[in-house]
């Protein structure tokens, strides 16, 4: 089968994909039960990083679908877009529920619309889907111990790298510059003298 057909067929979609999604939810289930007596420091460090993660969430424009869902107010329409922007399409797995054109995405969007229209809260809608499809249906992985690797990993790497940098710069400062012997010094002067008339290099 034509491998590039995968681009179109494997996802059972009919139109090209789209991107864009909204804010991820502020994690609300962080477990701070740490062992050891330095829990305060680690707690603080975790909180700082978490804060950094939260405040740096650039608000991305929520993607819109092409169905004609009707909403009483623009705020409610934005609310709907925000919620479907947080969910993943299980067929086109790199797309949000808002962007995907897969059949299942159409169905799930209709489902979410009905639930929101009947007054269900965001949490109820998300729980509904997570109960049926698992955490994978959340576009942003939840922040829980098993996902610390991806949420805190980069910062841990940065810390390690900075430490290594400081050590490397510090270590090489202790390296003695090699002394040149008298013979080498004479050779150096001869070379510099020879090159005096040849102009500077770039």
């Amino acid at each position: 089968m034509n491998p590039m057909k995968q681009l179109v067929e494997s996802t059972k979609t009919s139109s090209p994909r789209k991107r864009g999604s909204s804010n991820s939810p502020i994690p609300n289930s962080l477990d701070f039960r740490l062992c050891g007596n330095d829990w305060l420091t680690r707690n603080l460090l975790f909180s700082i990083v978490l804060l950094l993660l939260v405040i740096t969430a650039p608000p991305l424009p929520a993607a819109v679908t092409l169905e004609s869902f009707t909403f009483p107010t623009p705020a409610e329409e934005q609310h709907f877009k925000d919620v479907i922007g947080q969910l993943r399409c299980l067929v086109c797995q790199n797309e949000t529920l808002a962007d995907s054109d897969a059949d299942l995405a159409h169905d799930l969007r209709a489902e979410v619309y009905e639930m929101m229209k009947s007054g269900k809260s965001d949490k109820e809608v998300i729980d509904f889907l997570v109960n049926r499809y698992g955490d994978f249906v959340l576009y942003n992985p939840p922040v829980k111990p098993s996902t610390y690797l991806i949420w805190y990993g980069p910062f841990v790497l940065l810390a390690i790298a900075v430490l290594l940098l400081i050590r490397a710069v510090g270590r090489q400062r202790q390296v003695q510059e090699p002394e040149i012997s008298a013979e080498e010094r004479k050779r150096l002067e001869r070379l510099l003298g020879d090159n005096a008339g040849k102009g500077k290099q770039g």
Partner: peptide, 23 residues
């Protein structure tokens, strides 16, 4: 995560964007 049996996750556009914008 799949290889270690830690469940199924995928990081998406928001995660990459956020990290990129921080660094």
């Amino acid at each position: 995560y799949d290889a270690l049996g830690w469940g199924k996750i995928s990081v998406g556009f928001p995660w990459f964007n956020r990290m990129f914008v921080i660094f």
